[in-house]
Design a protein around this nucleic acid. Structure first.
Lengths: 203, 203
DNA sequence: AATTATTTATACCATACAGTATATAAATTT
DNA sequence: AAATTTATATACTGTATGGTATAAATAATT
């Protein structure tokens, strides 16, 4: 069993992560965090070195949740095409997912941290690379198994796919209209069906 | 000729706009602004009611510049298709454009203001609507002139186009890699050529 | 050029900020 | 259960915050 202190640390990150994600690094104050957690500064500074460490832990927490969800969707049993559809289907209601985190961590921290915190900005770039890599792996596998053909390299296509998804995330987030997600996924699914499906082009 | 005071107000907005755009509403302090302008608080508060008014004027300034650039690209003489390509071509090097503003105002303020400033958030939504409307108008014109055909309504297609462009903007901005813009525009151009061009499907 | 109106600089306000020292309380170990 | 370690609360730094009152300086008007 975990010690009380460890559980407190986790509790702090869980509680604080959405606050940082909503209001950004500079926009979040230590008193916002004591208020959210019901703890005092002593407790926060006892578990984390400073504000930056709290923000970093918060992003890593949200990023991990996102990466796990993406992994789960991409690693279902089935063909590579079915795995890609599983991912796009996840983004169909991605607004519900990111609402529980106070917003998409990639988008929010990526934009906020760019000129406010170099460490966080680097962490976001790492997360983006990881996601693109995961998608590329599925695509590469599909090419190897001759389940699909790609007009460009797997990584290149993965980047393009993620860019479009992230565009929908940005628009849905800024406008509050989740139809941007829905319409983009509908578009992407037909794109994948038309462009990547191998069965339409027998050897 | 303009009065000295009017020119000072303009100078303040010009100088302050990139600072707000880079660091966000909460991340920008009044002393950041006195430092950037070389003026004192007295001067800033003599020309603007408060910090929020300064931030609002800054966004409107950047937004206007963007809308003017988009207008310029969309209103070249030529067919509706050429106008759309003129817009996508603008986004090919959009990073240079937004660098001079301290980032894309739609993306940066849209993400930053969502939970930090309701007024700014509403202004961004308005700008998005305006851009989508401008693109939709060109598309509608093209349909009327039978220069192109659309699988969905002009506004719907305009939204999808802008979503993809904004996705590229977000990715390029977060990673610092402008190839996201280039690749997306290459993709969009071929998409438009294949899907919208009427000449391939004679009546 | 003198007067008036406006604009900017200075000095200040109360409050909020991130962070710390230390005392108290609560776990953990023996 | 007692001793010890660890975690949390309290009270406190010094500094920065957005904003203001007022005085000095500069434009604009007559």
């Amino acid at each position: 069993m975990s010690t009380k202190a460890e559980r407190t640390t986790i509790f702090i990150v869980e509680t604080v992560a959405p606050v940082f994600n909503k209001h950004g690094y500079e926009g979040t104050s230590m008193s916002d965090l004591t208020e959210a957690t019901g703890l005092t500064k002593g407790a926060l500074y006892g578990n984390f070195e400073n504000k930056e460490a709290l923000a970093m832990a918060s992003f890593e927490y949200n990023s991990k949740k996102l990466l796990q969800a993406i992994d789960e969707k991409l690693n279902i049993p089935g063909t590579s095409l079915e795995r890609i559809f599983s991912l796009t289907n996840f983004y169909r209601t991605y607004n519900e997912f990111y609402d529980s985190m106070g917003g998409c961590p990639v988008l929010n921290v990526g934009v906020d941290a760019k000129h406010n915190n170099a460490l966080l900005a680097a962490a976001v770039r790492e997360t983006i690379k990881t996601i693109e890599g995961k998608i590329a792996l599925v695509l590469e596998n599909g090419v190897n198994k001759k389940e699909l053909r790609l007009p460009v390299t797997p990584l290149q296509f993965a980047k393009q796919l993620f860019t479009m998804l992230q565009g929908a995330v940005a628009m849905a987030s800024m406008t509050g209209d989740h139809k941007y997600l829905l319409n983009t996924v509908v578009y992407l699914d037909q794109l994948v069906k038309k462009e990547l499906k191998m069965s339409t082009l027998p050897a």
